[in-house]
Simulated assay, not measured.
Amino acid sequence: MVFVHLLGDFVVRRKRLGFVHRGHSIPPFRRVLLEPSCDLQRGFLSTVPPPAGRRYWTPALVFPPTPVLRVLPSAATGSLPRRFHSSWLPSRVVSDQPKGAKLLDGRSVATGIRERTVKRIQALREASTTPTLATIAMTDDPSSKRFLALKHEACEEVGIDVRPTLLPSDAPAERCYDAIEAASESTDIDAVFVQVPLPEGVEEQRVRASIAPAKDIDCFHPLNLGRLVGGDPAIEPATAGGILTLLDAYGISPVGRDVVIVGRSTAIGRPLANLLLRKAPGPDATVTVCHTFTSNLVARTRQADVLVAACGEPRLVDGAMLSPDTVVVDASATRVETENGHEIVGDVDFESTRAKARAITPVPGGVGPMTLASLLQNVVILAERRA
């Protein structure tokens, strides 16, 4: 904790300090003690009540990484050196205190989305419509099968019917195309989901063209992809939309921020980049997408205000690749073998990154629950349009 000069948002009169926000005033004090904080609001001033047993308030300034000001009565600071006087007018705070990142808990946010989705499903069922999702997967990978099973379980929990098609990875590609076309033509199915990545030999462009645009849950069809790129998505892809919802739930705005996405997959990286680039009332972010051939990846990740790791490389990103106070979103989950069996890890080395970040998503429990909740929500949206 250190003393620094005040920022210009405060009114200084002689040796007294007054702070006014929306008609509320913090009484004037003689000294001001500043402490960095990660929990700031963007674009306006706010005041935070004092913790139990303390007598001071915490006014929060406008733009991160602006510090939180902890204002102490003169009785608490009377013995402080005179050079730390409240009439000084400074700029920035530096502190030697370690900061831990706030956890962006996707489970709690996803629970609220599911609760609202259940109410919409009940309304559809009362109108004799049962939301139905068709899933098509062509894989032998245990992790992919597990993630698909989680989607099916989530649908069943909220009352969405599921029509699954699971094909071995070495099955003829025509079986995949036929399954997608059959689901798209069925009058009983509202939404179609295709598990990616697809095995070699399956043409991604043909898969995209086979999905009916009105049932396309992830903007795969060229028509829906074009609307996404054009800034007018028919629906927000589940993972990309879930990430934006999670950031919004924690008051983290990407407006005007540098967002670096590590990974250019058609499932996460590219859709997220297009959503972030939308003009107001969209996110209005400055977006950099990194990939296998990106030179000097560390230099680019250190420029990020918000870093999204979505490349499927376990623990690729560590604390040395970040600038202080970066918001870190880990959008991957990979099953890795350990001495005791296996564990699920993300693209981010959690421990080294958490010590440096402003906020971070855990794996599991961060983006994963948001993806599932957004998927359920998208099924309902498409079902309501068809009802």
Rank of each mutant, 00 (worst) to 15 (best):
K151S: 10
F3H: 06
R315K: 09
E203P: 03
S79C: 01
R114H: 05
V345T: 08
H152G: 04
T47P: 01
I360F: 03
R83C: 01
P59M: 09
V260I: 06
V48P: 08
A123T: 10
S143M: 13
V62R: 15
V196P: 00
C155E: 12
L61N: 13
D325E: 14
Y56V: 12
P73M: 00
P49W: 09
A373T: 11
S352W: 15
P49I: 08
Y250H: 06
T111V: 12
L34F: 14
N224E: 11
A240G: 09
K102Q: 14
A280Q: 13
V306A: 00
G319P: 12
T66W: 13
R116F: 09
A209T: 06
V328L: 02
L277M: 15
Q377W: 15
L277W: 09
M138A: 03
E313N: 08
P73S: 03
E153G: 04
D170R: 03
S295I: 07
S87T: 05
P314K: 00
K145N: 14
G53S: 09
R42I: 11
R163A: 06
I344L: 15
G226A: 02
G8K: 12
T239W: 13
T361M: 06
D218C: 01
V345C: 04
I252S: 08
V94N: 00
V229N: 09
E153Y: 13
R208I: 00
V229P: 10
G78N: 05
S253E: 15
T58P: 06
G242D: 07
H221M: 03
G346Y: 10
P283A: 06
A234S: 14
T326V: 06
S108W: 09
T58M: 15
G242I: 07
D284S: 15
A75I: 07
C176G: 03
P81V: 01
R83W: 10
S186G: 03
G242S: 05
S37E: 13
S86P: 10
P27A: 11
A331W: 05
E343V: 08
E153R: 15
P67Y: 08
P28D: 12
P364W: 15
M321I: 00
I235P: 12
P131N: 05
A357D: 05
S295N: 11
S25P: 12
V229R: 14
R175T: 10
R54W: 04
R163V: 14
L382G: 11
S46M: 09
T294W: 08
L104N: 09
V194F: 01
L69R: 03
G43I: 02
F63M: 14
R385H: 13
F84E: 00
D218I: 01
A214I: 02
K102C: 05
I180M: 10
L89W: 05
L72Q: 04
R125Y: 09
S128M: 12
K215H: 04
T294C: 05
H152C: 05
T117Q: 12
L307T: 02
G112M: 03
F29P: 03
S332M: 03
S323E: 12
G263E: 13
D349Y: 01
I136T: 06
H152R: 13
R335K: 07
G365W: 13
L124D: 11
R175V: 04
